[in-house]
Design a protein around this nucleic acid. Sequence first.
DNA 1: TCACAAAACTAACACTTATTAGTTTTTTTA
DNA 2: TAAAAAAACTAATAAGTGTTAGTTTTGTGA
Lengths: 196, 196
Amino acid sequence: MSKIKPVRNGTRKDTIIRKAAALFRKKGFVATSMREIADNIGVEASSLYNHIGSKSELLQSICFQVANAFNQQLEEVEQMETPTAKKLESLIRFHIRMMLDNFDEVYVANHEWKQLGEPFLSNFLAQRKQYESRLVELVTTGIRKKELKNIHPHVAVLSILSAVRGLEFWQRHKKEPERPELENNLVNYLLHGITR
Amino acid sequence: MSKIKPVRNGTRKDTIIRKAAALFRKKGFVATSMREIADNIGVEASSLYNHIGSKSELLQSICFQVANAFNQQLEEVEQMETPTAKKLESLIRFHIRMMLDNFDEVYVANHEWKQLGEPFLSNFLAQRKQYESRLVELVTTGIRKKELKNIHPHVAVLSILSAVRGLEFWQRHKKEPERPELENNLVNYLLHGITR
DNA sequence: TCACAAAACTAACACTTATTAGTTTTTTTA
DNA sequence: TAAAAAAACTAATAAGTGTTAGTTTTGTGA
């Protein structure tokens, strides 16, 4: 019937991925059918295959796009010439913004990576592991330099990552603390429990 | 072929639910087929229906059994005559133990509740919301009594719940801090950032 | 040992799934 | 405006889904 509207500055493929991300987030990857995605765009399911290779490819795009964003930011922060606490704060704030600005995609990457097929699954998990290790390294360095409290680095890192992930629940209580205030509250709780 | 072995002090239904929980955790609810569950037990898929009503019923059992456990513990803690921080610590420790001792079930309740059909979905979400509210109430009281730092209660509660949930990642680094040490580290991080 | 109940089986059902082939319509390019 | 490319369509396929009916096997209590 109608045509797929390319998203601003993007291809039709991008449009499909965005809609897919929204549905994957709401219903889960496996529970979302190609027909549903197509319906939601206003097109037949088979038409999607003029733009994408497969359903799995959609999930792959979403997961690795998110992974790349986080990796790139970590790279930049590692280069910074600031105290460890400041680096940590930058990263936490980036996580918060990613969570709020790219909710569907980040949520899907966090919850649906299990449905990736090989070799993508292994690749994704390896990247995640490496990301965590680099954060642990950061905290460890901070402790050695006496810039941070002497806390178990791995516990701290996983707590921080999890707490930020918990922002997904905030979608529900939207009116609660406004965005910048929420951001500051969370950073404050996570850091000033650890910062000396 | 063979028969379903009833779990110690349990019914055959319990055995099925346990195996289902393990598979739902590994592959997700929708991606797990009744035939897979049956295979894993060593029986035909149709045989399962001598013991259970439907696939959805399996998910319901898992989710509400977990919800009940948490609600019951909260009830008990609320009755305690101890400082707020102590109550909070009890709850955190209970969450940690539930996470480690009933990993599959807690994980499934946390990740697969979306797949519950109505009216179970609404019921489950309502219980979750109420649980959170009661925790917020607890923290708020603690702040009013000057037993806790003056932090945004909702941010604190969600951070705590999320951080504890993050223990699911710990399954991977099993050798890291041993259980009691891990527990103490986490409690320490979560509370001594908030305790006065 | 006989009868009854519990629990397994086989076979089939009605649907839904992702994906493909082939064709037609629409848009872009020359 | 004609030719080429892009993007939609219809129709079909093969595989997998949860679940049911009917039957056979297994275990139990009289």
